[in-house]
Amino acid sequence: MQEVTEKKEFTPNIVAFCCNWCSYAGADLAGSSRLTYPANVKIIRVPCSCRVNPMFVLKAFQQGADGVILCGCHPGDCYYVTGNYYTRRRMSLLYSFLNYMGIEKERTRVEWVSAAEGARFSAVMNDFVKQVTELGENRRLTDLRVKEGE
């Protein structure tokens, strides 16, 4: 597989898993406050950041995501009290492991965004999109069969 050096006009596909109670509400607030974030961020609402099985992250990459970001309530503020503490451990290990497999660490991120942080949501997404755009297309953890014929 060739590493892509050309990056012109590359718009990454970003999947953002957002917890229903904080980050999704944060995204809502960003919208109603007319703060923008790139349209190529596809939000998947989950009941709690803890709902995100590592399989979901891999599936997102398989289906063509160039970056995956997971957002939840700030630690201590989880709607289900402790859910995001587990998420924190899980995602630390998973992302570290993906990097160990050679997957660029810039492709994955965890951010805590509360319902009141519409501005932060927008800033985080803009920053992550920028980061992944600079990195280029995901070639290392993707299913070529999915992209066939594109």
Binding site: G76, R88, S92, K105
Partner: peptide, 18 residues
């Protein structure tokens, strides 16, 4: 087990990555 427990001061994933 480590994945079925936590502490409030656990490392942040982004810090782990960096």
């Amino acid at each position: 087990t480590p994945l079925t427990s936590y502490t409030e001061s656990d490392a942040e994933p982004n810090d782990v990555m960096n």
